[in-house]
Write a protein that binds this DNA or RNA. Structure first.
Lengths: 136, 136
DNA sequence: GTATTTGACTTGATAAATGAAAGGATTTGA
DNA sequence: TCAAATCCTTTCATTTATCAAGTCAAATAC
């Protein structure tokens, strides 16, 4: 389904998705037009889901990057899920997981105060274990 | 430092980083040239770290998305870190964390067999707790 | 209070990329 | 063997990006 050229295209676009089709073509030994049509095909069949940017959260004022393992006593998760929806500014991802916990919440916070407030609010619905990212 | 227009630019580029500067300008009520110069400034001061794509890992044959909490008995982490470097094809992120464990490893695997092999190899250096992502 | 500087934007000209259409290899299947 | 399909290249018209002035307003200095 995908050949080495396609993998090369995905690799190059992962490094820099704003590259021109002409440059991309040069990297994988195609003309710009051929590269563009390959990329269009990768979009059509859903391999490429979208184009995004990497934002430096620290420079945006979010110093704290945390993973929070969610443990629910209740089998009724809706209160937790509703709460998460109200906290979108802090949430990067909410994974439903198997293993140690029901959900793994990836979050960012601009201060310990706001993290503390978030945890207090969170604790009204579920228990949790907190892990702070020190380095990547 | 960053005004609402800059936030709008970051928002639009997060949704689609391949938008033309002309279109981006229209969305935030600027000319293409003004938008391009704002974006250049955001790149220069490090707010925008890069441009990337979202790849559908399932379509690439990686069905299993896992978080592995790493617990080391030894204070000497180098064997683990060296091992991780040899397994780049499976590793999405390796976070050093505080809390329950020393590292949080985000991985993808094309099969249970390869996950199993990975865990066996991993277990030669450290202990771990495995969480499989069911949903996002 | 006026002049100067600075920053952010617009305009306009030029260079570059994109998109569409046509055509040429190569492969596939009847 | 022939026809169809796939993938690529070439060409050209159109769109976009880039660079250099030029405008405007606010801040700063004299």
């Amino acid at each position: 389904m995908l050949d080495n050229t396609d993998m090369g295209i995905l690799h190059e676009l992962s490094k820099n998705s704003r590259i021109t089709m002409k440059e991309l073509g040069e990297k994988v030994h195609l003309t710009g037009q051929a590269a563009a049509s390959r990329v269009a095909k990768l979009e059509d069949n859903g391999v490429i889901e979208g184009y995004s940017i990497k934002v430096n959260q620290v420079k945006l004022g979010c110093f704290i990057h945390a993973f929070i393992t969610i443990i629910t006593q209740s089998t009724y998760h809706q209160p937790y899920l509703s709460f998460v929806k109200t906290q979108e500014q802090y949430i990067i991802n909410n994974y439903k997981i198997s293993g140690d916990g029901c959900y793994l919440l990836e979050c960012k916070f601009p201060s310990n105060e706001l993290l503390n407030q978030f945890l207090e609010d969170l604790n009204e619905h579920v228990n949790y274990k907190l892990s702070i990212v020190i380095n990547k």
